[in-house]
Write a protein that binds this DNA or RNA. Structure first.
Lengths: 338, 338
DNA sequence: CCCGTTTCGTGCACCGTTCTACGTAAATCA
DNA sequence: TGATTTACGTAGAACGGTGCACGAAACGGG
């Protein structure tokens, strides 16, 4: 079976033969290791250039490092991923590391498979973004490969690092901004997932929401709506929420991912924003910034999160054993929706 | 240097020792190769299960296949990628293949590096989505690994397959719909890239636009605006275009990626859509479907494209040598913007 | 009962790297 | 000048699998 394409590959041996040196010498040049004369280096580099030699990552991974990092993303269409990804890249590119991406589809099962896949591919380290995987499972894999987690709160974790924006603080920011503008009837809209960990961002934001409401002595006005995570009923539930007689005066939505459809649905129903209903989201997605959307949203500075994550991973790969848990401050971007 | 995590890995030898058989026997079981008794298989499978053994993709890749496909995406924030990706996954998952993603950032240089990266990682095949790489370069890599290209027209390519929606037809669809509604002063807005291949989708759509205008004897009304590909001047150019005294009456924009910001800018400037200006995009992104955006757009059925691409790749991996070039029909989704 | 086939399991030579250990020649020091 | 270093380059054993070639045992037909 299977070939479909072939052309004998240029290996380290081909180069060694061409340059008239040993395989080990070529290897040394590649890794710019100690004990290589300029003459040898030049000879080998010339052959490499001439033959277009590239070392096999697979083979290399069997002994040394692969200079490749794995990045596991929840999905491909989440608005806050591009920023984080870019932040990661800015660091890894400078360090000469390559990135391989896995797309987890927000299913823990898939994510686990991908992590194993990346370990099996001998990546040097892993960054998990908004992973659904439980803390215990993470500890398990963290024993096999350096791991840094973004968008998943596990402040007591020993084996891996976590980098997050302070979701609770972000939520408090939102509630306080709404209170400042005179809103009292503020509800929180969140996703309800079957396997909902407290570690996920949505529950964290809920905590912040409750804290801020309590601080304003509005605990009794606290209301939380949970949207089903998958399927069509999601939109229907939004419509229900928006057309209910006791519709809240202001909604803080866990993510732009839901805040934007919610806003759209409000628009369709002729509900005026913010005159009839104020809405605030989270993640400050590009769509929120569009002038006809103008959704206020919390910005968690994805590029910075990504950068910190990559740096943490590198320091961990270089031997740091004690876990690091970083929390950065989010900021609220106010637009027409409040 | 570097370890940060370790725990001696379960290898094929560990399993062999545990099951009391040879390494080769375990390998045979893994590959369900010929010549394995049920007794042996059971013994080995029990050990695999017990030890939680997973074969190393890297090691395996040095001789056999890795059962991993590489998918190269232009970027991470392009609205038409999720659909394609999902289509690919639907096929590969069923076939028991894993997917590893590379993100090309729309730079040919980066993309080339990623392709090599994937070849070096011994992926069994590659799907390139909206790649910027030239046909000649693709032929080169296609000799090393089976390749299928999506969103890049190269109908004469010999070494690899192309799967596309008919961009010319999609553009004609748009122009005809606008003509039907009485618009005559129809302009095309495209991105202008330094290395602009005719193979890319934007020039293809331009061809379709010109064809349809010519067919309506409106060649003299044909106008094409080119937005710079990178940097801030992009938005400024949009503003310029929208505030020009001879602003077109209708705009067909090469992609929602630009059509949506354009629409947003029009909104900000108080230009009424469609009363003062009609806009149509391409890719039918989720944002276009929002009720306050309501952008008409061409749908190219990403999931179908992805599915076809994956199927083509499999058939190529199974030995097909003659290239396949598939073109599917796009459809126009009409919304409030025309 | 003998001999040619199958069937099953094993030994071993790869695959393309890395890296330790070692030999040799040149450079440095006393 | 002889004894040490130091610098350079090379063998060769890993790494974790695959898959060919081979031998032994079981099978089956005449």
């Amino acid at each position: 079976m299977a070939d479909g394409a072939n052309e004998t590959r240029v290996t380290i041996r081909t180069v060694a033969a061409d340059a008239g040196v040993s395989v080990a010498a070529v290897s040394k040049v590649m890794r710019n290791a100690y004990g290589v004369s300029d003459a040898l280096r030049l000879k080998v580099e010339a052959s490499i250039e001439k033959l277009g030699y590239r070392p096999s990552v697979a083979a290399r991974g069997m002994r040394g490092r692969t200079f490749t990092l794995g990045v596991l993303l929840v999905g491909i269409d989440n608005p806050f991923l591009p920023g984080i990804f870019q932040g990661i890249e800015s660091v890894t590119e400078a360090a000469g590391y390559k990135i391989m991406v896995g797309v987890g589809a927000a299913r823990a099962r898939t994510e686990v498979t991908l992590i194993e896949q990346m370990i099996d591919n001998r990546m040097d380290g892993l960054i998990l973004v908004a992973s659904q995987i439980s803390g215990a499972t993470l500890e398990h894999y963290a024993r096999q490969i350096p791991i840094v987690v973004v968008g998943h709160h596990e402040p007591a974790a020993q084996g891996y690092d976590t980098i997050n924006n302070d979701d609770q603080a972000g939520a408090r920011l939102v509630v306080r901004a709404l209170l400042d503008r005179g809103y009292r009837d503020i509800a929180y809209v969140t996703q309800s997932d079957q396997d909902d960990h407290l570690a996920d961002v949505a529950p964290q934001r809920e905590i912040g929401y409750r804290q801020a409401m309590a601080a304003a002595s509005l605990s009794d006005r606290t209301r939380v709506f949970r949207l089903p995570a998958h399927g069509l009923p999601r939109t229907e539930n939004m419509t229900l929420l928006l057309t209910a007689p006791d519709r809240p005066r202001a909604i803080f939505c866990w993510s732009d991912l839901d805040a934007i459809p919610l806003l759209s649905e409000a628009f369709r129903l002729g509900i005026k924003v913010p005159e009839d209903l104020a809405i605030v989201g989270y993640d400050n997605s590009p769509t929120a910034a569009l002038s006809m959307v103008a959704l206020s949203s919390v910005d968690q500075d994805g590029p910075r999160l990504g950068k910190l994550a990559a740096e943490a991973l590198f320091s961990r790969m270089n031997g740091r054993k004690v876990a690091e848990h970083i929390l950065i401050d989010p900021s609220l971007i106010v637009r027409g929706s409040v």
